[in-house]
Write a protein that binds this DNA or RNA. Structure first.
Ligand SMILES: [Mn+2]
Ligand SMILES: [Mn+2]
Ligand SMILES: [Mn+2]
Ligand SMILES: [Mn+2]
Lengths: 226, 226
DNA sequence: ATTAGAAATTAGCTATGGCTAACTTACAAT
DNA sequence: ATTGTAAGTTAGCCATAGCTAATTTCTAAT
């Protein structure tokens, strides 16, 4: 799946462009700068380089688009990232709120050989601890029809599948409530005007209340289908 | 054990200076350049920087010496390196001739938190797959009285403890002969004039012949003491 | 059609850590 | 004591990738 040796910056920019587009946002200079925590002027510089490398299509003042080659690199780095997260959580018992930060660096440091060994040791997982899909070696990636919790109706039982958030703070909070991928919850009540949701944890039978903006980051699918 | 964030170059140079001195060589500009595969002129530049950072004592045209701060950084990186080698071998079944290359990069990428988790998962090992001692968190390091195989006499039984070599080629060869740390061998014969050694593998009862210059890299201790 | 303001780009820096080519220094052999 | 040579240093490059400040462009509201 690797194409040729890339610098860390090239890997981070292509990954960022991919994820911005994947979540439905537009990969503008400012959006990329915000995501990577660099100044817009620096992004313009890198975009020129990525365009020269044929990894993006770039017209000044316009949003960018990954080429097939750029997409391949992005998926490669994301595969590293999510495999590492999964490995750290499963093999080393690292809490799910710490794995992202660690993977952010390790994703650039592991060889294809190690990538394969990790995938093998984990049994080629399809999803990471946050429910993010792990791109396969061949560049394909699992697609699911997920909706945020507030998009379901009261009375529905849903299976939490993915948390669209990576900051440790939020993850620790959601984890403490038991809202992790795989958990089934019943939507008990939705307060009006974007008010909090009341959820019932199927397994424990306990009831929890979750702010609308937090529930918005919890993606789920119908019933308790696996 | 960490002091403050260091660049990869700073970590590699201090590590290299430490290992050159540790094996009994003199850390000159040329020796460091050879080890790191850079030009001597580049080494001079970095030595000036390391001196400014108070990590080495440096007088132009003289061999360098690590300060206490420099030594701490070197030991930290070496601890990372050897813990990673051990982890890759034990937890992922990676062959001992591949772990060095991988660790050479990962040593700069893991956090102190991950370092601790790896050490914990392995039960705080004292030695890596090559028998190299793993510096402890407190900066101390196991010392052993080892001698190369040719330094023993015919008829002696010795326990292999360390291989002073890191190239995959040599490690694969020694591994194929069964000459790995922990193995006990009997020195059967030493041909004169730096000729090959004939060894008997205790467990298998088989006999092998090893060139003098290879035997020179195999460090052992008397008997089969653990 | 104008135009204000946001978004993006350009120009010109900086730091890091490589390199080659030219030079200086140290020292060992005479 | 002199001097040739290897070792080491200096000077002047280069690439990468960040920054600020100044400028240009796009667009949406008038
Ligand atoms: Mn990254
Ligand atoms: Mn994730
Ligand atoms: Mn290294
Ligand atoms: Mn080792």
């Amino acid at each position: 799946m690797r194409v040729k040796p890339q610098t860390r910056a090239v890997e981070d920019y292509t990954k960022t462009i991919y994820t911005i587009a994947e979540r439905g946002d537009v990969p503008t200079t400012n959006a990329i700068a915000g995501e990577l925590d660099v100044r817009p002027a620096s992004v313009t510089g890198m975009l020129r380089k990525l365009a020269a490398l044929q990894l993006i299509r770039y017209e000044p003042y316009r949003p960018v688009e990954l080429t097939e080659a750029g997409r391949r690199i992005a998926l490669e780095v994301i595969r590293h990232h999510r495999l590492i997260e999964t490995f750290l959580a499963q093999a080393l018992g690292m809490p799910w709120d710490q794995v992202h930060e660690e993977a952010e660096i390790l994703e650039h440091a592991i060889s294809e050989r190690l990538e394969d060994r990790i995938a093998e040791a984990l049994g080629h997982p399809e999803f990471d601890p946050h429910g993010d899909p792990i791109p396969r070696r061949d560049g394909t990636i699992a697609r699911r029809e997920l909706r945020p919790l507030p998009a379901f109706s009261s009375g529905e039982a849903v299976r939490i599948a993915r948390i669209r958030r990576q900051d440790a703070e939020a993850l620790r909070y959601l984890g403490s409530l038991g809202l992790t991928p795989g958990t089934t919850v019943m939507i008990h009540d939705k307060a009006p005007l974007d008010g909090p949701l009341t959820l019932e944890l199927r397994d424990l039978g306990t009831s929890i209340v979750l702010a609308h903006h937090m529930a918005q980051t919890v993606m789920a699918e119908h019933g308790d289908a696996s």
